[in-house]
Design a protein around this nucleic acid. Structure first.
Ligand SMILES: [Zn+2]
Ligand SMILES: [Zn+2]
Ligand SMILES: [Zn+2]
Ligand SMILES: [Zn+2]
Lengths: 519, 519
DNA sequence: CAGGGTTCAATACGTTCA
DNA sequence: TGAACGTATTGAACCCTG
């Protein structure tokens, strides 16, 4: 109790250097006072971390994020100092309180000594001011705070109460947007983590109207994002690639001409009321998908989005290319790929990714994407890929060239055979395309979880679609086959890339060329 | 501790273990000073129990109530330490304070009169107990409110911040992982929703186990490049455990006294160099798993880890419980669950998760976990669950009680029947346990991708194991059945939770009680 | 002595203020 | 910003009693 105070003081008074012997701050090499937030640091670094651990985002290094931190230089760059704190392992989970402290200036209380009065053992005598302060503190109601929960369950700005029983959450009238909804406008602090905080699963469970019963297939365990790690890729030069992709395709964000068909927000912003006429109009637009009655409303919307965004796939390809020559075919492939990327670029889930990840997906996946597109377009009878009636590529064109092409074609046509029953189903192939776009197993993804989530949702829809299209057993079989297909595609992709790379760059479509350069 | 180390060593060198054994603290395995409060404990555990035996209610485990208590880890979780104290039988009847504290309580309640003493105007005289209470309250949380959110999203007692930015919610417990607020321990209102609706709705869309054909050579490649930068936003998981960095146990979280069996690093970009002799020696240790020659080296290691960490499952359960009464069975269930959680806590992949996610997994999954464990232990012949030869629970014990129990039993035994051929295979059931631990479809996971990855890996191993254990076709069939089983378990979980909740809390094991409280 | 209770130095977190 | 300070928990060392 307070009886210790004098002792502590006296100890501190003579504060022996011995205490600090050999202990230096990991951050700035000053004398360490002990372990703070998990790491041996000095007092100043401790205080610094305390103050700033929660505002990483708002601190930026004015130089190049590599400032040296020493006892004398530590004040020059907060960013690097803080960054070093984290790097060496200081842990903000240790912070218990911090943020909330309303800087209530308490009236100064002099050190309180508690004296036991002689008369009554049980009684103590204290300074009145001290007692009052204590009483105030102990009784303090959170009436003045503005805590809110970021879980996304409550409407934003909802005020929380102190005792959990009180469900009548009070709403704040604070003008300052206190809560940032999980997926809405991300708050400045630590955006990414924030995004992951309330994952789709959460909203999907809360959001949908209770009236829609989800029928649960027994065998619903879903597919293997194959626990397989694709080839390691060299660290790419994003800038160059970004340049091309930005300009040439619809990667840029709010493309005014092609407004994104955005439905993913049903998963994002819980606070938006579910607008019935909104989704109604959307689900009406497409009779194709209305037969999939086993899909949840969200899934329907996402499938609908897929349909709508897939329109560019069918955009005509100018016939300035000679489809009877390999070179022409390559150009055409490039054009086709470009259309696929336009489609991807319009998918809300794709747009939600960081540019880095979008690049990564495209870069590593373009072979697969082309392959899937090829499967969609291939006509077995005439042995042609037909983009449209005017744009067909005969298989024979490819039969001439070297061993790489041979290998590729071989693998590819195995796929064609294996998917004969599926690849003509537009819906399924669209879903497959989406699944191939979102490949969480790619290395170097910054937001793998997002990719994973997106892919899983498409997987889920795929299964349900199959269950409508085919009898139960068969659906399952086909589903499994599709899973295998996705894996196979990796192989095909490699072969395809090898083919492309084998050609003179001049022959390649610029997009393909750039992609191949990155390999 | 450090001082007695030599002591111990010298003893060990020449003395029979028996004498030595007599001096080990039952709680933390430090050197015991003698019998304290009825149990052989060390000085520190004695002091600890003294101080905290009467405030059970206010101490909550920040993890999952399964923290291992060792001499070096004992400080990290008061709740688990205290809980262990009680569990091994430390008895607060010996506390002479007990009655005093009753008095204290009464005093606290009764209105305190503040008397101004004559001598000094500024001084007042109050009851000592009252003053202490005030001090405690006031000091606890000097300048912040105690709002908590009831959404069930955050760990209970989680402190909320004023601005929504702070998604790294701070626990009200102090950094040592300890105290939770004396005020509200609000039970999240919506946990049940999580427990029930969540898994089912979403397992349909997520949690993808690898399906049939997974034999593609180039995928055995290891993950990329050490030159990969750790993801900027998510701090590496091990940093989250930084709070233990300064201790001797470093990473031993609620973890093992033995070093964690860590192989998951091969799956991380946080690449520690791959130490070949390390894993080699490990894979030699277990002849059980060497027959699974189709596993990759990494998979073997992970399976091995599973074997090693599963040891605690078999830890004896004290037979102070009457296994012929429901109440005893409930206690035993609690004990069993605790063992499962200890196992989970030792899995590297689990340790790599943030505390929040670990909580989430445990909270929503404990029913499934118990169910799986039950499947492993059930003996069809004798109709008993047999933890060990001394600890058996006859099915009849459960036959008496109400409709909820009936429903549960019915569902459960369907599972028993359905898994007759599998549930006796230890390897498979271990894998199933792991798969059930890592359930990426749970809502609110911060690092769903990690959970997802872990589960996928276990799924992959499971399939391969099945392919060794059974002929190809059958393996596939069983695999699919296991997938379905995982879904079924959700249902069973619901039933089980309902059963537990039906019982008087006093009857429940503290761990179960707390988990049920969240419903 | 054994086993209750108590003391106090060591730590490490939060707060204050120059 | 950081030194100084206030507070809480821990555990070794003690004290006290039957
Ligand atoms: Zn420093
Ligand atoms: Zn800097
Ligand atoms: Zn002990
Ligand atoms: Zn604990």
């Amino acid at each position: 109790m307070s009886s210790q105070t004098p002792d502590l003081n006296s100890r501190r008074a003579c504060d022996p250097p011995k205490e600090f012997e050999g202990r230096i701050c990991v951050i700035c090499a000053d004398r360490a006072s002990g372990y703070n937030f998990g790491i041996l640091t000095c007092e100043s670094c401790k205080a610094f971390f305390r103050r700033n651990a929660l505002r990483v985002e708002s601190i930026k290094c004015p130089f190049s994020n590599s400032c040296e931190i020493t006892a004398s230089s530590r004040r020059f760059c907060q960013a690097c100092r803080l960054s070093k704190c984290f790097r060496v392992g200081m842990n903000n989970q240790w912070l218990t309180d911090a943020k909330n402290s309303q800087k209530l200036k308490r009236k100064k209380i002099k050190p309180h000594k508690v004296e036991t009065t002689d008369e009554e053992e049980d009684k103590v005598s204290v300074s009145k001011a001290y007692l009052e302060e204590l009483q105030k503190k102990a009784k303090k109601r959170p009436s003045s705070c503005s805590c809110t929960c970021t879980c996304g369950f409550y409407e934003r700005g909802t005020k929380l109460s102190e005792d959990g029983n009180d469900q009548t959450v009070r709403k704040t009238s604070t003008s300052r947007g206190v809560v940032s909804p999980p997926f809405g406008t991300p708050s400045p602090l630590n955006v990414e983590e924030h995004l992951t905080t309330a994952p789709i699963g959460f909203s999907a469970i809360r959001a949908p109207p209770p009236s829609v019963p989800v029928s649960i297939p027994q065998f619903t365990q879903l597919p293997p994002a194959p626990n397989v790690l694709p080839r390691p890729t060299a660290f790419p030069a994003w800038q160059q690639m970004g340049q091309y992709l930005h300009s040439a395709t619809a990667f840029n964000l709010p493309g005014p001409s092609m407004a994104p068909v955005s439905r993913w927000d049903v998963f994002h912003d819980l606070s938006l009321p579910f607008s019935s006429d909104y989704h109604l109009s959307l689900s009406m637009t497409n009779p194709e998908i209305s037969k999939y009655s086993n899909l949840t409303e969200e899934e329907l919307l996402i499938l609908d989005e897929l349909y709508i965004t897939s329109e560019p796939l069918k955009d005509p390809i100018g016939n300035q290319y000679n489809q009877n020559e390999i070179s022409g075919v390559l150009k055409i492939s490039g054009e086709a790929l470009q259309r696929i990327l336009v489609m991807a670029g319009r998918l809300q889930a794709f747009r939600d990714l960081e540019i880095h990840d979008r690049m990564q997906l495209v870069k590593s996946g373009f072979g697969e994407l082309l392959a899937v597109r090829g499967l969609m377009a291939f006509d077995r009878e005439s042995k042609t890929w037909r983009h449209s009636s005017e744009m067909e590529v005969k298989i024979d064109v490819l039969k001439i060239d070297g061993p790489e092409l041979q290998l590729f074609m071989e693998q590819y046509f195995k796929l064609v055979d294996a998917t004969e029953d599926i690849r003509t189903n537009y819906t399924i192939m669209l879903l497959l395309t989406a699944i191939v776009i979102f490949r969480p197993e790619l290395p170097n993804l910054k937001e793998q979880h997002k990719v994973c989530r997106a892919q899983n949702i498409y997987y889920g829809i795929l299964l349900k679609v199959l269950q409508v299209e085919f009898p139960r057993e068969e659906a399952m079989r086909k589903y499994n086959r599709l899973l295998a297909l996705v894996v196979e595609l990796h192989t095909v992709n490699k072969a395809m890339v090898r083919v492309f790379c084998g050609f003179d760059h001049a022959v390649l479509d610029p997009l393909l060329r750039e992609l191949c350069d990155k390999i």
